[in-house]
Simulated scan of single mutants.
Amino acid sequence: MTSIVTPDICDAYPEVAVLEPLFVNFGGLEAFCGPVRTVKCFEDNSLVKQAVAEPGDGAVLVVDAGGSTRCAMLGDMLAEQAAGNGWSGVILYGCVRDVDILAETDLGIQALAAHPRKSEKRGEGQRDLPVSFAGVTITPGQWVYADNNGILVADQRLTLP
C-alpha cells in the first residue's frame, strides 16, 4: 500500500475536504484510508458493534456520535473485532476507551478523546446515511484518508502522490 501523507494529498488534490482538527489518533495504524461506511448514533454503540461484526473489506467506519464526551463508543473488544474483520479504520465523532490496547490494535482509530465509561446499548441509531461533523458532510462511498496531520474526504479513490 502506498503511504498516506495527507499534506501531500492536499497538495495534489486541493479539492479534497479537510475535517476540522478535532481528532486524536488512538489506533495502532497511524495512517489509513478506505471507502466510507457510516453510523449515526448518540451515547448508544449498538450499531457500531453491529457494523464491526461485519466484513469491513478495507472500509473506514465513520461514526457520528454527536460529539458526546460523556461515554466511549469504541473500546478494545470492538476495535479488535473490527481489525479482525478487515476494517481499515474508525473515525469517531465521540470518545473511545481502553486506549493502551487500542494503540496496539492493527486498526486506524481517530476520535475526539478518551472516556472510561461505556455507552448504552438500546439498539438506537442509523446506518449508511450522510453524516455531518467537523465542518464536512461525509457520504457512504466517499473515500477517507487519515494520518497524524488530519482527516481528508474525497469523492472517490485517489491516486496517491
Rank of each mutant, 00 (worst) to 15 (best):
S119G: 08
D100M: 13
L47N: 13
G56F: 15
L22Y: 09
V62G: 03
D8G: 00
R37W: 09
D76E: 13
R117G: 07
E15C: 04
Y13C: 03
F133P: 07
C41I: 14
W143I: 02
V5K: 10
Y145N: 08
C33P: 00
L129G: 00
N85M: 15
G94S: 07
T137D: 01
R37F: 06
P7L: 08
E124Y: 06
R122S: 05
G123W: 08
D128V: 03
S46P: 10
A72W: 10
V16D: 00
R117D: 15
T137W: 03
V52D: 15
V136I: 08
D44G: 14
T69P: 08
D98Q: 00
P14M: 06
R37I: 12
T69A: 15
E124F: 03
T6R: 00
A111K: 10
G56R: 14
A111H: 10
I101F: 00
S68P: 12
Y13M: 05
V36Q: 08
D106T: 11
I109S: 02
I91V: 15
A51D: 00
D147A: 02
G84D: 13
D98C: 09
L61T: 01
E43P: 06
P21Q: 11
V5W: 07
I4K: 13
Q126G: 05
G94H: 08
G28D: 09
S132L: 01
K121S: 14
